[in-house]
Design a protein around this nucleic acid. Structure first.
Length: 428
RNA sequence: GGAGGAAUACCCAAGUGGUUGAAGGGUCCGGUCUUGAAAACCGGUAGGUCAGGAAACUGGCGCCAGGGUUCGAAUCCCUGUUCCUCCGCCA
């Protein structure tokens, strides 16, 4: 959500931005907002003066009553009634305009950073940098479920019976590896100065509406029947949501937070659960980073955040690259974002394992999160990024650490969490 | 799950239908005192948000949220949320 003042003062900037995102159908919204805003303000000005008159007259009634001037009081009452009549329609119009403006403001995209590459869709995203050599071994890398099967580490059949498609049981060392990766990720971020959180895994509807668009909500969120509660799709929801309607003292900034949570996603819509195995599932776990900072610092934090993820994967010997989201593929709330992608030696290409976003002040504006500064209150910037999200990450892990003899190497940093094991040996 | 109580501004807090234009503190700024600071004392203005205005300023809204009663609601009524205390249950 952008500042409506920007539309009032520089509508052409907003339109230019919409064009850059190839959402020309939204251009008309800018003019509509401009017009409705004019009408709204006129209605509000008129309404305010009428309401002022009601207040003044009502006060007079009190005085008349005290002085025993019954007739004057009655006359004034009639006058107030008259004004209220007039106000009735005006207030309906005011409210309607306000809502119409808001629904449009909600879908007008945030102003993208000038460095964002222009492009229509994800095919025009731009590779920024590679980290580590993308190795293609001279032995065959099987599909990840087949590798995991050699360790008897996955039970999809039972999960299908208990919960349906998109769920899984992890078993034995593979389950332990999953937990180890998260524990290592937690410690990795704590060592980099982030404060560790375990947030609520369910949140209220008003928080959900603040952190995502209606469409996203429909496609992602599981609702608890009979309660105003939703299962979170990422801990970003509860971690940013915890600041809803809060006024944060300036000296508290920046908040550099890292949180663990399970994530629940319906995955309705374009993709669905089409990829076999652990790639796209209804339930996964994630170590996340969330930053709330001064507006002028968000660019600096953006670079710190994605680098953390790159460093994390590199310590596990997984080659990665950063892929910058082009203008057309960038979600409407975001100023700039990039994916961290891991190398898949089986597919001989990179695939997404994390996503780093700078939302500017759009999320803060939507959730009414403000900073109490010396010269007044203002909106902070918010950012978020994935540290690691298994089990998808396990795909990259197994493919990259599989040896020619069928064992899987456990990289140094994970060994303490794996009881000192240096490799996994196939059980069948 | 049951029974009570509470929610007022950045914080504390007064306020049971009409000079409340939300008192009073604290925070903040200035002064006295002090080598400096703290404490104490004296003085001061601003409070959130929207609209109008070049500005000074003016007005609306705002007392957990949403409805309602009334000429007029922080105050009365209804619904919901959160927190606290006690009881019950439970990892």
């Amino acid at each position: 959500m952008i500042d409506i003042k920007l539309i009032r003062e520089n509508p052409e900037i907003v339109k230019e931005n919409i064009k850059k995102k190839f959402q020309d159908e939204k251009l008309v919204l800018v003019d509509e907002v401009l017009q409705m805003d004019k009408e709204y303000r006129a209605a509000k000005t008129k309404g305010d003066s009428l309401r002022g008159e009601v207040n003044k007259t009502s006060k007079q009634i009190g005085m008349f009553m005290r002085e025993g001037k019954k007739e004057d009081a009655e006359k004034a009452k009639a006058r107030v009634k008259e004004i209220n009549q007039e106000l009735q329609d005006l207030e309906v119009a005011e409210q309607k305009l306000e809502e119409e403006i808001k629904t449009r403001m909600m879908v007008i995209p945030n102003i993208i950073d000038p460095t964002v590459p222009i492009g229509k869709d994800d095919s025009e995203n731009v590779e920024i940098e590679k980290f580590g050599e993308p190795i293609i071994p001279d032995y065959e890398i099987p599909y990840h479920t087949d590798i995991i099967a050699t360790f008897d580490g996955l039970d999809l059949d039972s999960a299908g019976r208990t919960s349906g498609n998109g769920f899984y049981y992890l078993k034995g060392d593979v389950a332990r590896l999953h937990s180890s990766i998260l524990a290592y990720a937690r410690d990795f971020m704590i060592n980099r100065g982030f404060t560790y959180f375990i947030p609520p895994f369910m949140i209220h509807g008003d928080v959900v509406k603040g952190v995502m668009s209606f469409k996203e909500m429909e496609n992602m969120m599981y609702k608890i029947e009979g309660e105003d509660l939703y299962l979170i799709g990422t801990s970003e929801h509860s971690m940013v949501g915890r600041f809803i309607n809060q006024l944060i003292p300036q000296k508290e900034l920046p908040y550099a937070l890292t949180s663990y949570s399970p994530c629940f996603r319906k995955e309705v819509g374009a993709h669905g659960i089409e990829e076999r195995g652990l790639y796209r599932v209804h339930q996964f776990e994630k170590q996340e980073m969330v930053v709330v900072c001064e507006p002028e610092d968000s660019k600096k934090w953006y670079d710190i955040l994605w680098k953390n993820t790159v460093d994390f994967f590199r310590t596990l010997d997984i080659p990665v690259r950063t892929l910058e989201c082009c203008s057309g593929d960038l979600a409407d709330l975001k100023v700039k974002s990039c994916d961290v992608e891991a190398w898949s030696p089986r597919q001989k290409k990179y695939f997404e394992v994390g996503s780093c976003s700078n939302l500017g002040d759009a999320q803060a504006r939507r959730l009414n999160i403000r900073i109490r500064g010396e010269k007044g209150n203002y909106f902070p910037h918010t950012l978020n990024n994935t540290v690691v999200a298994p089990p998808r990450m396990l795909i990259a892990f197994f493919e990259n650490n599989l040896q020619a003899d069928g064992t899987v190497k456990i990289p140094e940093p994970l060994r303490p969490y794996m009881g000192g094991q240096e490799k996994l040996v196939p059980t069948k």
